[in-house]
Design a protein around this nucleic acid. Sequence first.
DNA 1: TGTGATGTCGCAACAGGAGG
DNA 2: CCTCCTGTTGCGACATCACA
Length: 310
Amino acid sequence: MDPRFNGEWRASEIQTVKSLIARHNTNNNHANNMNKKHTDIVDELQAMFPLKEKHQVTNLYVELMVEIIQSGNQHVATSSNLMNGNFGMPMEDPAMGNMEEVLCSSLMEEMGAMRKGEEALQKQPTLRKQHAARFWTEEEHRQFLYGLRAYGRGNWKIISRHYVPSKTPVQISSHAQKYFQRLQNPTKKQRYSINDVGLYEAEPRVQNNASGQERLTFARGAYNPNHYGSGGQPTAMNNLPKVRLPLPHITSQASSSQAATLATGHQQQMEANGSFVAPSVEGDGSHMAWTSDQQGEFLDNQWFMDLRMD
DNA sequence: TGTGATGTCGCAACAGGAGG
DNA sequence: CCTCCTGTTGCGACATCACA
C-alpha cells in the first residue's frame, strides 16, 4: 500500500475510491463541467466516508488522480503527452480522451491552487505559527469531540493521548471548559467560535436538503471569525442548534466499557431515554442519522481500535 | 489499615487579542 | 472603548498508590 495513506486510509477504502473514480470517468456526464464533476466525486466520497475530514477526502482524491495519471502515462513515450494519457482508465469512447484532458487540466489547476495556498501561508510564518501553536484548529476540535464522545467528560489525559496529541490534558480540559460553557448558553448571542463546530458537521449533507449557504459555511472552514450566515445572524447562531453535547451524562469516571457501549450504536436508544442526543437530523431526516454501514465504518476506525485496546 | 505523596480533575479568575 | 473569545494559571477536591 502506498505509505502516503498509512494510518489515514485503509487499502480497501483506497480501492473503493479508485473504483468510484473509475466509474465517474466511465460515465461521461460532466464532460463540459469538470469542476462539478470534482465536486460531485468529493461529495460522494465524503458521503461514503462520513468520518473522514473533507480535506482528507480531497487529498486522497487528488493523490489517487495523480497516481492514476502517472500510471496512465507509463504507457506514454514522453511527458509532453501527459494531457493525452488515459489515466489508466478503460477508454473505449474516443471522447474520453478529451474529457480526461479537461479533467487532468482541472486537476492540475486545483493542485496548483493548493500549492499557492500553502505558499501564501508560508509567507505569513508568524501568523501561521501563532495560530497553530496557540489556537485550536477545527481539526483538533473535531478530534476533541471524537475523544469526548468515546471516553466522556473528564478523561482528558486519554483524549490527549489518543485524539489530540498536540494538546496537553490541561489544555484540553481548559478547552472543554469553554466548550461546555458555550453549550450551556445556546440562546445567548455570541460571536463565532471554534466551539460552534459540532462533531457531526463533518458528516455529509444531502444536497437536496442542505442549502448552498449551509454547505458553504463549512466548506470554507469553520474557523472563520468573519463569516456570518445568511440570516443576518452570526454563524454561531446558525450552528448552535446543531452542536451536540456528545456525552452529557457520562461522568468523569465513565469506564471504557461505557464509552464502547455508547459508541456502538446505542446512541439512539440512549436518546430515547433522554440521556443522549443523537446526530442532528434536518429536513426529512434522511441524513445525519447513522446507518449500519456508517456504524461499521465507525467501529473500524483507528481511534476506536485504540479504544478497544484500553 | 491508616497516612502521606502524587496525579488528575473542575472551576474560577485573569490577561491578551480581536471584533463591534 | 467595550465586549467577547481564548488560553493560562491557581486552587481546592478527589482518587490512587506506596509505605509504615
